[in-house]
Simulated scan of single mutants.
Amino acid sequence: MARDAGDPRFSWGRVLAVLRKEFLQLRRDRLTFAMLIGVPLLQLMLFGYAINADPRRLPTAVVAAEATPMVRAVVRAAEHTGYFQVVQVPTEGEAEALLARGEVQFVLVFPSDFTHRLLRGERPALAVYADASDPAAAGPALNALLTLPRQALWRELTGALAPLRPGAEPFELRVHRRYNPEGLSAYNVVPGLMGVILTMTLVMMTAMAMTRERERGTLENLLATPVRPLEMMVGKILPYVLVGYVQVLLVFAAARQLFEVPMAGSFVLLSAAVLMFILATLAVGFTFSTLARSQMQSMQLTMFYFLPNILLSGFMFPFRGMPRWAQWIGELLPLTHFNRMVRGVMLKGAGWEALAPEAAAIGAFMLAAGAVALLRYRQTID
């Protein structure tokens, strides 16, 4: 053996021995092996099927006091573009409330005398209210909507009803971009960065906290103390709550001073949303710390969790542009609901009533993740 170890010649036998050892070690490290297979498959599924920068069939509220053939033709033409999924709403106030809560993306309001003025050649105005907080979601649909005056009524306005001037548009569109009238992407991206930064940093730091104890051999000392699992989790989490608030304050200050993002709502409500999201995120990190056996595994689990959060939460790509199954997954992620809360408070001035469903979703996730973390920690003690 000593002579073989000192042999200066290249040996494929020694290479194969090392190769066999590496494969055996990889097989024993099941979590790492799962990440090597799972991450590429996840990326393939998300980028191949779930990501769509041109969302279609966006919910659109239509307010029309009359149901004439002219009105139906305009609504039908809007649906045929593929960008609008129309629902009838009785009043303009109710439609704008849906727009503020994010339940619809657009509102079309026909004047009560739309058909009468149209037949008189007076070019009535069709009001369009768009939730422009995400310019990527609203932009293509608005561009498609601009073709309606020229194409929607070409069958109805023939003969004596045809416009006197060739090429004239029989009605006009008055587009009102709500919450982001200038279409600035920073208004959508910068508030979303709060949740993205918290997810990336807090999950990783919390996940590595317990595995660091295990690698250094101090976990056994902690297990020998009378500290209960809930007390351990609270003690590990509380320092990072302060860290999370510091990060949020830095992003908020940059949003206000550098990017001039408006703050239309309550800062107290925003702080409450941040606290809920921080606790939910830290519960996930604590769960990962009970699953991983090394800091490297903690980082792998963090990245595996971070990837669908950043892609399916509506931060990078329009949420309504994703297929239905991807939206269902996105609804399970706390970052999706936190982004809605932050943008709702900062851009729309949303109150607690509008944010309650999102807060309930984050609270349910937090309780579920905390229960799993406590259960896993008890198994570690046993």
Results as ranks from 00 to 15, higher is better:
residue 192 G to C: 10
residue 196 V to H: 06
residue 192 G to D: 04
residue 212 R to T: 15
residue 197 I to R: 12
residue 200 M to G: 12
residue 135 P to S: 05
residue 163 P to C: 07
residue 170 P to E: 11
residue 167 G to H: 11
residue 128 V to E: 05
residue 216 R to H: 15
residue 126 L to Q: 04
residue 146 L to C: 03
residue 190 V to S: 07
residue 164 L to Y: 06
residue 159 G to V: 03
residue 131 D to G: 03
residue 180 N to W: 07
residue 207 A to Q: 03
residue 209 A to H: 11
residue 160 A to R: 14
residue 135 P to E: 01
residue 219 L to T: 03
residue 208 M to A: 10
residue 182 E to W: 06
residue 186 A to P: 00
residue 174 R to C: 00
residue 148 L to A: 08
residue 143 N to E: 12
residue 205 M to W: 07
residue 207 A to I: 02
residue 178 R to I: 01
residue 209 A to S: 15
residue 191 P to Q: 10
residue 174 R to K: 14
residue 218 T to N: 13
residue 211 T to I: 09
residue 205 M to N: 10
residue 134 D to L: 03
residue 211 T to E: 05
residue 138 A to N: 02
residue 214 R to A: 13
residue 136 A to E: 09
residue 165 R to T: 12
residue 151 Q to F: 13
residue 147 T to G: 12
residue 135 P to A: 03
residue 126 L to M: 08
residue 156 E to P: 06
residue 183 G to Y: 10
residue 160 A to V: 09
residue 166 P to H: 05
residue 181 P to K: 12
residue 145 L to N: 06
residue 210 M to E: 01
residue 214 R to D: 01
residue 147 T to C: 02
residue 136 A to S: 11
residue 165 R to G: 01
residue 161 L to K: 11
residue 140 P to W: 09
residue 139 G to E: 14
residue 216 R to K: 14
residue 151 Q to R: 13
residue 190 V to W: 11
residue 195 G to Q: 08
residue 166 P to I: 01
residue 149 P to T: 06
residue 153 L to H: 04
residue 169 E to A: 13
residue 195 G to N: 03
residue 158 T to R: 14
residue 186 A to F: 07
residue 204 M to D: 00
residue 160 A to P: 15
residue 144 A to T: 00
residue 169 E to W: 11
residue 149 P to D: 01
residue 210 M to R: 10
residue 144 A to G: 09
residue 207 A to H: 05
residue 135 P to D: 06
residue 188 N to M: 03
residue 195 G to L: 07
residue 179 Y to V: 04
residue 160 A to D: 11
residue 140 P to V: 09
residue 215 E to N: 05
residue 206 T to N: 07
residue 157 L to I: 01
residue 134 D to C: 00
residue 135 P to L: 03
residue 171 F to K: 06
residue 173 L to T: 04
residue 177 R to H: 07
residue 204 M to V: 05
residue 128 V to T: 02
residue 162 A to N: 02
residue 134 D to G: 02
residue 168 A to H: 03
residue 165 R to Y: 12
residue 129 Y to I: 01
residue 155 R to S: 05
residue 172 E to M: 10
residue 214 R to T: 10
residue 174 R to W: 00
residue 168 A to T: 08
residue 211 T to F: 08
residue 153 L to K: 05
residue 161 L to R: 15
residue 195 G to R: 08
residue 190 V to G: 04
residue 170 P to Y: 13
residue 210 M to C: 04
residue 147 T to Q: 14
residue 139 G to D: 12
residue 204 M to W: 09
residue 186 A to C: 02
residue 153 L to F: 06
residue 138 A to H: 01
residue 188 N to L: 01
residue 149 P to I: 13
residue 187 Y to N: 14
residue 136 A to P: 01
residue 169 E to H: 10
